[in-house]
């Protein structure tokens, strides 16, 4: 049962990633992105991370994917406005040749560093309660820094997105 679910989720994940990599049509790669985010949420669920599953669905899908979709739909690219990518094929082959060995190395390293089975869990792993107590006991400073980062990102997005600007890239 879990194996079937894993196979299904990894199929959606890889199909979405490959769609993002290859698609020219904005609607196609937006759908691929949605599939990737949902599949990652499902994989969090398979790893017994119930709170991460919730956060991924609410923040990842509910905020990031929706925002991305709205922006892509607002810009509404026509076929002739899409960038010409004449060198895409050669770069894909060349990039794959360069990146694949590093990926293989990373995979072997990760596998070598961990046991080959999942340990039995204590009751309450990954629940909201357990996550909250760890977050606010051991990770308070990173949490506060993250809130500063979000504030800075919000200010930056507002300033970049303003219509009137005192500085001008054209001059």
């Amino acid at each position: 049962m879990l194996e079937t679910l894993f196979a299904l989720l990894s199929f959606f994940l890889l199909a979405g990633s490959v769609t993002i990599l290859l698609a020219r049509d904005p609607a196609l790669y937006t759908t691929g992105f949605l599939a990737v985010m949902l599949a990652v949420a499902g994989l969090f669920g398979l790893l017994d991370q119930s709170f991460l599953f919730l956060a991924q669905v609410m923040v990842g899908v509910g905020a990031v994917v929706v925002l991305t979709t709205i922006v892509i739909l607002t810009i509404n690219l026509k076929e002739k406005e899409l960038p010409k990518e004449p060198t895409r094929g050669p770069w894909l082959v060349l990039g794959a040749l360069v990146i694949a060995p590093f990926g293989w190395m990373l995979y072997r390293g990760l596998v070598a560093a961990t046991p080959d089975h999942f340990p039995v869990l204590k009751e309450g792993f990954g629940t909201v309660q357990a996550m909250g107590s760890v977050l606010f006991r051991d990770w308070v400073l990173p949490f506060e820094i993250l809130s500063l980062l979000l504030l800075a990102a919000m200010l930056g997005a507002i300033i970049i997105g303003k219509k009137e600007q005192s500085y001008d890239l054209e001059s």
């Binding site: 991924q56 923040v59 905020a63 869990l121 977050l135 979000l150 930056g156």
Partner: peptide, 22 residues
């Protein structure tokens, strides 16, 4: 099994949201 990794992943989700906005 250690919840620290899950908390880092949770913070990463926040970083992903910030990156998306910018």
């Amino acid at each position: 099994p250690d919840m620290g990794g899950s908390v880092i992943a949770l913070l990463m989700i926040g970083v992903i949201a910030a990156e998306a906005a910018l």
